[in-house]
Each structure stands twice: as structure tokens, then as C-alpha cells.
Amino acid sequence: MKFNVERKTFQQQLSAVSKVINAKNALSILDNFLLKVEGDRLSITGSDQENVMTAYMTITESEGDGAIAVSAKRLLEITKEISSQPLTFYINDETKEIDIRFLNGHFNFMGVDATEYPARRNQEAEQKTMMLPASMVQKGIDSTLFAVSADTVRPIMTGIYWDIHENDVTFVSSDTHKLVRYINSESAPGFTGSFILPSKPANILKSIIGKEDGDVKIVFDSKGATFELGDYLLSCLFINGNYPNYNRVIPQENPFEMTIDRVSLLTALRRVSIFAAKSSNLVVLDIQPNEVILHAQDLDYGTSAEERVNCSYEGNTMTIGFNGQFMIEILNNLHDDSVVFKLSDPGRPGIYTPLQQQEGEDIVIIQMPMQVL
């Protein structure tokens, strides 16, 4: 088997696929890329057993179809160190010897029999298919990924919940301290369904969507899904379990509203949070009709900070505490110039929404308050 590849494109595809490979694998074969040649097309596959990623590219001067597994670490190091130039692969199908030739030299090493590489999971007969704009999938992941829980005690909270309706897709995530509900009606799936997408494939999808335009073809059954976009194909397993009723968590009666410049509040929070106690990151908001005063202190080190930010507030004056780092994350993921902060009392969650929702979008973020001593 012989083929030529353009180094830059090859390295880009290897890098994309490498995101699915774990640093340590239970099966040694998963330390490898699976390279498969079919005519003038090369597929590069990586896997961690639960997720399988394949990238495709065009090759030239191809002689013979076939497949071989190649050390991912070695191939990434080789392509990283060679300047942009064609690479020619000579692969002995019987001995699995690989010879990579380039302008000034060559590399020679052994590959692994491709038949040892685990096959992609066969999907169930009963499955659903939807075509969603890449921008819709990217916005859904971008808006919710930051609030996914890292606590494996409750696995269902460690992924993004896709609640699919006939006319929209609702993306939800929560770590119990904050919850994001993002509705996008840019495209109508035409059916109902749901699944919990783990954070790892969500991150991989986020990275490849930026490289491709067009629609994402999503085919899923009760156990997992395949996402097909341009030159990429990602298969993953879902998180099993029933996601909590997120609508019940969102307070319906928050009569007091504070409208504030997002960047002004964000920059003030960053400064004040430096002086918050590291154990709690507590920032206290003293909300008044024309301004909000931010307080933070660390009694262990005898430090404190206070800053005032102009706002428009309708309601009773209120003193309420929140985790400052969580507030910073939330404000970083709201992209309108102004934010509406809805409250009812110091013991109930606060609700963040952009002042102007984008067309076809509806995002709501809630944050649990902290006790103010």
C-alpha cells in the first residue's frame, strides 16, 4: 500500500482525531490511529471505546487499498516536526512495516494489524435522524458546556441534555449551583426525543464545528449517536438516566429586576473576587435603585474589597450573596451588552437573561444564592 498526503492537512486531521484518544487506555490498540485507504480517500480514526472519531482527506498516487494502525503519539510528533511538504507512505501489508518518506529523509517503524482495532458500534434498528445547522449546534454547546457538572457521583449531570421538540431544540446543563436552559428554534427537527451528551464528545464537536460549515447530520438511538459534518464523523455513547425536570427549577415569580451593563459588572466582579475567601468565593451584592455595591472579604488574611456599579433596579433594596467565580462564568457566557438580573428574596435563586434575546433563541441562567454572614 502506498499513498501521498499533504503534510499540513494531514497534521490538522490527526490533531482533530487525537482529541478522542485518552492519555492512558485499557486496550493498547487504542493508543493508535487507524489509517484506512479506499481509492483516493484516507480515513483517520481514533477511539476511547465510548467515543469514535473519524476524519477524512484526499490522497494522491494511491496504490492499493488497505488499513493499518499507527502509534498516535509517534505520528503526531513526526508531522509536527516536518515542514510543509508532501509525505509518501509505503506500507508493507504483510509485515506491517511503515516507511514515511519526505524531501530530506525518511522514517521507518512498525505498525499494528488493523483487525485488532475495535469496530464502531452498530446502531439500533429504531433510530431518529435530524439535520441541524452547524451554528445551532455550536451555540447550544457554547451556551451550556460551562455549567456541566464535574461531579461523577451524579453522572447524568456531567453532560448536556438535548430536549428535542418538533419546532426547537432545548439544551440544558447544571452543576446544581447554576443551571442553563438554552432554546434554539433556528431549525425544526419535526419530532420529539431527548438524550444526554457527555462533555467529552461535546467538547470534540465544539472543536470541529469551527472548521466546517453547513448542516450537522445527527443519527441517534437509545444508546448513542453519530454526528456527521463535512470531513468528520463522531460516534458517542449517551449518559444513561433520566434528566431532572429543569423547568421546575426555574423560578416563575421574580418580581425585582436589575438591568446592568454586562462588561461593567464583569470587570468589577473580577477585581472584587480577588479578595473573596478562597473557600467560598462569596461576593455580596447590596442592590439599590441606582447602583449595586459589591463586597468581598477574606477574614483569614484580613483583606476586603468594595466596588460600585451603576444599574437600573426596580424593587426593594436587597443584600444577597453569590459565588463570584460562578457569576463571572455566567456573565462570560451572556453576550448581550446589558443583562437583566431577576430576584425575589435573598434565599431564592437569581435569574440572568440578556436584555435583548437573539432571534430564534431564548437563554435563561439561574444561580443559587449563598448565605451572607
Rank of each mutant, 00 (worst) to 15 (best):
S83R: 11
S84A: 15
Q85C: 05
Q85K: 12
P86C: 11
P86Y: 11
P86L: 09
P86N: 14
L87W: 06
L87V: 11
L87F: 05
F89P: 03
Y90I: 09
Y90G: 02
Y90P: 01
I91C: 05
I91T: 04
N92T: 07
N92E: 13
D93A: 15
E94G: 01
E94F: 05
E94H: 12
K96W: 10
K96R: 13
K96H: 15
E97Y: 00
I98W: 05
D99N: 12
D99F: 02
D99S: 06
I100D: 00
I100V: 13
R101C: 09
L103P: 00
L103S: 12
L103Q: 12
N104L: 08
G105K: 04
H106R: 12
H106E: 12
H106C: 09
H106A: 10
F107L: 10
N108K: 15
N108W: 01
N108Q: 11
F109V: 08
F109L: 09
F109R: 14
D113V: 11
D113M: 06
D113T: 08
T115D: 08
T115A: 07
T115C: 00
E116L: 14
Y117V: 07
P118I: 02
P118F: 01
A119N: 11
A119D: 14
R121V: 13
R121Y: 07
R121T: 13
N122E: 14
Q123G: 13
E124H: 07
E124P: 01
E124T: 10
A125M: 14
A125K: 15
E126N: 11
Q127P: 04
K128C: 10
K128M: 15
T129Y: 06
M130I: 15
M130Y: 09
L132Y: 04
P133Q: 10
P133L: 04
S135F: 06
M136E: 04
V137N: 00
V137S: 00
V137E: 02
V137A: 01
Q138T: 02
K139Y: 02
G140Y: 08
I141E: 08
D142W: 01
S143V: 05
S143L: 01
S143K: 10
F146P: 06
A147S: 13
A147L: 06
A147Y: 00
S149C: 05
V153F: 08
V153G: 00
V153A: 04
V153D: 01
R154L: 08
R154E: 04
P155F: 04
M157R: 03
M157C: 06
M157T: 09
T158Y: 00
G159H: 06
G159R: 05
I160L: 05
Y161L: 07
Y161N: 14
I164S: 04
I164T: 08
I164Q: 09
H165N: 13
H165Q: 15
H165R: 13
H165F: 10
E166T: 15
N167E: 14
D168L: 12
V169Q: 03
T170R: 14
F171T: 03
F171R: 03
F171A: 05
F171G: 03
V172S: 05
V172A: 05
S174W: 00
S174T: 15
D175V: 04
D175L: 03
D175A: 03
K178R: 15
L179E: 10
V180R: 04
V180N: 00
V180E: 02
